[in-house]
Every structure is written in C-alpha cells, then in structure tokens.
Design a protein around this nucleic acid. Sequence first.
DNA 1: GCCAATACCGAATTTTATTCGCTTAAAGCA
DNA 2: TGCTTTAAGCGAATAAAATTCGGTATTGGC
Lengths: 155, 155
Amino acid sequence: MINSELDTTDIEILKLLQRDASLTNKEISFKLHKSIATIHERVKRLKEQGYIQRVVAILNRKKINRSLIAFSQVLLNDHTADTLNTFEQEVIKFDEVMECFQMTGTFDFILRIATSDMEAYHSFYRNKLATLPNITTVQSFFVLSETKSDTAYPL
Amino acid sequence: MINSELDTTDIEILKLLQRDASLTNKEISFKLHKSIATIHERVKRLKEQGYIQRVVAILNRKKINRSLIAFSQVLLNDHTADTLNTFEQEVIKFDEVMECFQMTGTFDFILRIATSDMEAYHSFYRNKLATLPNITTVQSFFVLSETKSDTAYPL
DNA sequence: GCCAATACCGAATTTTATTCGCTTAAAGCA
DNA sequence: TGCTTTAAGCGAATAAAATTCGGTATTGGC
C-alpha cells in the first residue's frame, strides 16, 4: 500500500482494535482470513501512518471515585487572544477537567468535568474554576445517566 | 490483596496503562521496581476486578473523516418514561452519535456528534435527529478547537 | 513461637510479536 | 504477448512477551 488509502482489511482491523486492542494478531488474522504476518504488517503501518494514535486502558470511573460528570459552559469577558490562551492554559491544569473545547455559539468553552460527587464539584467550581480571570458566566449541567459513551468511530 | 483497595503499585500501573496500554509488563516492572510476575498478577487482577474495563485503540479522527464535533442539546416534549426510552433507544443507533447523556437542567440530553463536515452534520440533523418523535428543540454547538481531550483520569 | 494468608520473585513454559526470504498477482510497457 | 517492476501476502525461523508455578519472606492472629 503506497499511502494513506485504507482498504477493506485496514478498516476491519481498525474496527476490531477500536473495540478491543488486546486482540492478538493471530485472532485478527483468523477473523479476517489473512496471515499473521500480513496483519502484523498492516497494524504496524496503521500506527506509523497515524491512523491509530495510541492504545489506552479505559478505567471504570465509578470504581476510581469519579461518579459525577458535569458539562460546564464558560463565557469569558472578552475574546482577545491573550484572554483565550490564558483561560485554556490554566483550566487544563485542573485534574477534574477531562476535556476542554472552544466552541461556536453563545458561550466560549465547554468543559467535561469528572469528580467524585456534587460536593467535590462544588469545591472545584469555587476554588478552581471560578478563580480564573475573565470569566463572565459558568453554566453547569450534570449527567443523570449515560446512554452511550463510545470511543470507537463507526467505519 | 483481598479486595478492591488499590495500593500505590496498583495506582501507578493504572496511571501508566491509561496513557499507554501497549507497555509491556517488563517495561512496567522496570519503572515500578517490581518483578514481571508481580506486574502480571496485578494487571490481571485489575482487569478481573473491573478497574480496567477494556483496552482500546484511539484513532485520529481527522484521518478517518470525522473532523467536525458538535454538542447537541435536546429538549423533549414530555418526560414520560416511554418518551425518554424511545428517544434514547433510537438516537444511539445513529453512527454519528458518539455519546448520549441524560442531563439535569434546562434540556434533557446532550449528544456528542462526530461528522466529516458541516454538510454531513446538517444531513444528520435533518434526516436523522429531527425525524425522531417528541423533540421540542435542538441546540447545536460546534467545536472550534480541542484544547484538551483525555481518557485518562488522574489518580 | 506457630500457623495461615498474602505479596513477591525467578525460572520454565507457552504464546505472541517480529523478521526475512520467497511466491504470487497486478500494472506498465515495448 | 511477453517482460519487468512493484507491492501484497505468506510460512517458517527467531526474538520477545505473557503466563504458569513452586518456593521464599513478611505480616498478623492466636
């Protein structure tokens, strides 16, 4: 394969590894009717070319005391590069902040916050988030139930 | 270890595997100054006890044509169990829906939608999401930039 | 002091990953 | 058509990793 185009085998490999990256090449080769060497070569290339960014362990957040997920929408006072950069640089330092996106629309950022409970969220909000400069408003929404949460893109 | 409590070694293993699950037991044993057999035993237990839910490959979404991420906030007409269940069951069938959370607050669900571009989002919205019954409003916000996006919980 | 339980380890074994040389299929071209 | 080049694919050999197992050391209870 010269470059960048994915064929059916590549796509099937990516589908499998998105679901379970602990599959062995032998198992994959059996499912896709290819040799172990071929699968090995394919996976190696998919990593080298950056399709597979990394392989990670997904933890059960309830077992490590992160039962509460909040989405917090943040609006800043102004939108100078300096204000935006400062906010980003500071907010991502907080352990509770799993994700930070700058957004289009009526607010500037959306944060995904993981804490143990509402008390911990409150503490994060008062002692960390709200201390950052140039914040106009923060609106928080809490996850009642997780219907779907997937890291695997359909291919 | 009798049950469920994590000691320092467990926590260090989880930290490492959250970042890079392709680390070998040998590499981990070197970092943590334990034997390979001990690391093997620990990791096995962490999986069995459900701390490690699964091991997955994280793909570069830009390389697989999922450049646009949207958060869509959905408000339903009513909140009967039936309406809620139907919405959940149907919306998670759409390929574009990576996450679906029922939320507290002024709307009912927040969806994370991954599409190739705005046109694809529009098509998803018109032909899929908006066809579901009992939707009052949908408000969509688009990701301009991803400052932080992490699957690893600090421990 | 003795016993039981547990964490830990080294070494042996099994399984997997990785390498390499060969074969086959396809594409370009005279 | 027949020749050449290129790349995908493969099996077998090798290297590395996972897994198993028996034994030691430590700790806490009695």
